[in-house]
Design a protein around this nucleic acid. Structure first.
Lengths: 135, 135
DNA sequence: GAGCCGAATTAGACTCAGTCCAGAATTGGG
DNA sequence: CCCAATTCTGGACTGAGTCTAATTCGGCTC
């Protein structure tokens, strides 16, 4: 799966997002590497050569992508949020020592025994985080 | 299960924690209500009548309790950490709308299909978070 | 191409959770 | 009662994330 500029534009449009320069850059940063990135890292990558995109725009854009379900938010570390370009159902292994975050394909995982939700409640998603240490 | 001052002192000692005034107060705040509280909330509760305990101490103490496994950290919300006086194995339901956090007893839950960990890695814990919305 | 309009972007000030520091207070063992 | 080690403190600081008011962009019409 390659992420040409055109493919990204297509993808943004498909999610009802007006494809601007900055948005394409940010989408590129996330999807081309397919890694979990923090807002900080996205900002750094996008402005690698010349400063082109402001902090505010990076945050705005990431939140927009979230809202439009183009990416997911992964909350494992108390001091930063990671953004995940993989929207397939999956879970995470979090290495507490070095902060590394790895995917686990959800299709092999089976969870049973979850309780009934109270009336009028809908599941928004189930996150499983396996916290891991070295040694 | 009641939490008298003496019981709390006993509990702290049992976890290798020197029971000082402030630590007893903070333990009381958490265990007497048995709720998930943020550092902010703990600070507010402890200083309800007269200001008695500083912000720094609350944070120091919560981290000390964590380290000594007296309480657990629950990371579900990007902008605050919750501290959980329940150290029995259990998971959480997080109501995204109102921030409410509810326990799920772990004994009824069965997870299968978790992958083998790479060599030299140890599981530190498995957290399951069921995100829930109203309506 | 010139002119217009709403949407997007920007710099920089601001907020707020959490940390750090260096001095002050408390504690407990002798 | 004394002293050293531990704990506590206020206040300065940090860094992620938000807000705001002003500017720029891009697409449209003529």
């Amino acid at each position: 799966m390659s992420y040409t500029r055109d493919a990204l534009v297509e993808m943004l449009r498909h999610h009802d997002i007006n494809p601007t320069h900055q948005r394409i850059e940010i989408a590129h940063a996330l999807f081309a590497r397919g890694e979990h990135l923090s807002a900080d890292q996205v900002l750094a990558i996008v402005n690698d050569r010349h400063s082109e995109t402001s902090k505010a725009t990076v945050y705005n854009t990431l939140n927009l992508f979230l809202e439009k379900k183009l990416i997911r938010e992964v909350i494992v570390d108390p001091n930063k949020v990671f953004y995940d370009p993989n929207t397939e159902p999956h879970h995470h292994i979090y290495n507490v020592d070095n902060g590394e975050l790895t995917d686990i394909d959800a299709s092999r995982i089976e969870v049973s025994g979850l309780p009934q939700l109270p009336d009028g409640m809908v599941t928004d998603g189930v996150d499983i985080i396996v916290r891991v240490r070295s040694r």
